[in-house]
Write a protein that binds this DNA or RNA. Structure first.
Lengths: 244, 244
DNA sequence: TCAAAAGTGTTTATGATACACCCATGT
DNA sequence: ACATGGGTGTATCATAAACACTTTTGA
């Protein structure tokens, strides 16, 4: 039997995870502080090598997340983001990493473990700040993950999952504003989300407020896809036409 | 220095290519007939293992395509589709394959080479027919690739690239109909594509026809993205309400 | 003059945006 | 009364779908 194994070079396969959430009014990403070389002590995404030839990529992603952050991954929805394999992205050897995105609410605070010296939620504004140093090509990965998360809430009902079990339309709008980094018109937003079938279910309850009309409370409806999709306001062009 | 190389299992990294085009009025995919085990003689996507630790994933994809099909890959736009890594997708050993999609016009007929015994364009209707046997998980990959190609022409001007340098609106519409497998209203389609800025540029020429009004000829315009996007007709629900 | 294919006009419906305005509560 | 935020009404615009109709050619 012909075999071509002779020409297969020694390449390691890793998985990395961009776990995003909305916490404390900010889009945050789970980062670890590396406890091993290379990039010892630097911030990085949780991840690591496939540990067993019989481990699926998805399973490896879940395992690494649990190992390094202590987060419970049962029922966690992971989706492949991209595979990064530039020849020199890891100084030790050739590593191809399959990256996963998890964009999920309600995760606990992490507990460092495995090869991670520390683990914490970090606002993406800080993680992507030019002054923040990140290991490997993880800055690029986080940028890709944020963009994917932004587009996911355009056509799914996922944003509602970041609200409390009972929430107001304003709570939901703030999730969109945080993730997109754009202000939305509260009135049009209200009409839109209450008009989409299966998105919100009124509970009949109302908020008690300090000043202002009480808001109706809603629970998540059965829909997972949004029809029609929520539209992100177009990024305003740099204004080069000021005459005065 | 701490190292964790001891726990890195022996995994091969491959690239596979789903090369799609529109030829002879059909959406077609480039398939090879395998010249080596496993699945000797079976239809498969072109692809193979990374051959060198310094070869990027993109470069490996181009190399494999040229080796197995003889196609010229200069200027070819490849985009990552997905990474498939189920533990038993290859009977020999653990293989993680990074799949690329190329959806491009004007490719020549292939010439088999490398590990391919034959190479040919195959209509996707045949490739995905239940009676067609495909190696590994390549049926799934082709399905994913077709879906991606279908959505790409919704929001890009790529479809026009499958027409001759000068083409009519009907030529362009037929590309959409072939890729989507749906009939479109010629009149609304005409208004739509001629109304999108930068999509089509009238050359002033006309077709000579056998019966029927001559059609205006167009060239591709400078736009790459479509605003607003072309809408795929919604898949009709199975009609369970026929009463007569 | 007729068939065939190209292209235009018109109607109707949907949805986005902007924003005026009213509603319900705490102070 | 009034500030505060919740929620509705409405005009205007952009686009999509359906389809009647006109235009331009070859036979």
């Amino acid at each position: 039997m012909t075999d071509e194994a002779w020409k297969i070079p020694d390449i390691a396969v890793a998985v990395d995870l961009a776990v995003l959430t909305v916490r404390s009014g900010a889009l945050q990403v789970m980062l670890i502080e590396r406890g091993i070389e290379p990039h010892l002590g630097m911030l990085a995404l949780p991840g690591g090598f496939l540990s067993d030839v019989d481990e699926s990529l998805d399973a490896a992603a879940e395992r690494e997340l649990t190992e390094e952050t202590g987060l419970d991954t049962t029922g966690l929805h992971l989706e492949q983001l991209h595979t990064y394999g530039a020849p020199n992205r890891d100084p030790r050897r050739r590593v191809v990493t399959v990256c996963y995105l998890a964009f999920v609410p309600g995760l606990a605070s992490p507990t460092a473990g495995g090869d991670a010296r520390a683990a914490a939620w970090v606002p993406t504004a800080i993680a992507l700040d030019p002054r923040t140093e990140l290991a490997f090509d993880h800055r690029q990965i986080i940028e890709d993950a944020v963009e994917r998360a932004r587009s996911k809430i355009e056509y799914t009902t996922l944003a509602a999952a970041f609200c409390a079990p009972e929430f107001t339309v304003t709570d939901l709008r703030q999730v969109y504003e945080i993730v997109w980094g754009e202000a939305l018109d509260p009135r049009n937003f209200h009409r839109k989300v209450t008009g989409v079938e299966g998105f919100l279910v009124a509970t009949g309850g109302q908020t008690t407020r300090q000043g202002g009309r009480p808001a109706a409370l809603y629970r998540r409806g059965p829909a997972h896809l949004l029809h029609p999709a929520m539209l992100r306001p177009p990024a305003p062009k740099p204004d080069s036409s000021r005459t005065s």
